[in-house]
Simulated scan of single mutants.
Amino acid sequence: MTVVATWIDVIAASSEEKQRYQQYKLRKQQLPQEHRAAVDAVERYLVYRGVITSGDILLTLLDDLMILFEECAADGTPVRAIVGDEPVAFAESLLDNHAEGQWIAKERRRLDQAIAGILSATD
């Protein structure tokens, strides 16, 4: 199974999530072309990089992205001013704000617990 298939499976987990995703896509179509293209590019990166394991968290991340771009488009803010000089850093900061939904969050907790267990056993 590819990352894209997994992402679609996560989105399609419930009819409510499907509806939220459809609303997101409709909102994206309302953006000016340049902003819409930027959202598409950021979304692609997030999906391939993020490995979000919860449909709700992924949709919340996409909603946050959409709110930002809708507000900036309404204000006439150019795409470069939104994503800065480092679009990857911009996307990574979005992922950092939604880390609880990534598979790595579970592994981080596991590592913390393992080290805490090792240290408490030697005390």
Rank of each mutant, 00 (worst) to 15 (best):
G55V: 07
Q19N: 10
T53M: 13
L95G: 09
R27N: 13
Q23F: 05
D9P: 00
S120W: 04
R20I: 05
W103F: 10
Y45M: 10
V47L: 06
A121E: 15
E107C: 02
A13G: 05
E16P: 00
D63V: 01
V51G: 06
T122I: 15
L61S: 02
M66S: 09
S15W: 02
G117M: 10
A89E: 12
N97Q: 14
A74V: 06
Q19M: 11
I115H: 00
G76E: 09
H35A: 12
A5F: 06
S54F: 02
E86P: 00
V83F: 03
G76V: 06
S93I: 03
L68P: 00
H98K: 07
E107S: 09
D56W: 01
S14M: 09
V79R: 04
Q102N: 03
V88C: 04
A73W: 01
Q19I: 07
T53Q: 14
A12S: 13
P32L: 10
H35T: 12
D75S: 12
V42W: 01
T6Y: 07
M1S: 12
E107F: 11
M66L: 10
D96H: 08
E71H: 04
S54R: 07
W7Q: 05
V39K: 02
S93G: 01
S120K: 15
V10I: 14
E107W: 10
I57C: 05
I57K: 03
R20M: 11
D123N: 08
G50D: 08
R20K: 12
E34N: 12
A41L: 11
D40H: 08
V10P: 00
A37R: 12
A41S: 15
L61W: 03
Q23L: 15
E107L: 15
S93M: 13
I118V: 13
A81W: 08
T77W: 00
K106Q: 14
R20N: 07
L58S: 03
V88K: 15
Q29E: 14
L111C: 06
D112M: 11
T122N: 03
E71M: 08
Y24W: 14
V47K: 02
D123E: 14
L59G: 07
F90L: 05
A5C: 05
L31F: 08
A5N: 11
G76C: 09
G101I: 04
H35R: 04
K25H: 04
Q113D: 15
P78T: 05
Q102W: 01
R80P: 00
W103T: 11
E43V: 05
G101P: 02
D96W: 04
W7Y: 13
W103Y: 10
A99T: 04
R108D: 11
R110V: 05
M1N: 06
P87N: 10
K28N: 09
T60Y: 01
D96P: 00
V83P: 01
Y48T: 08
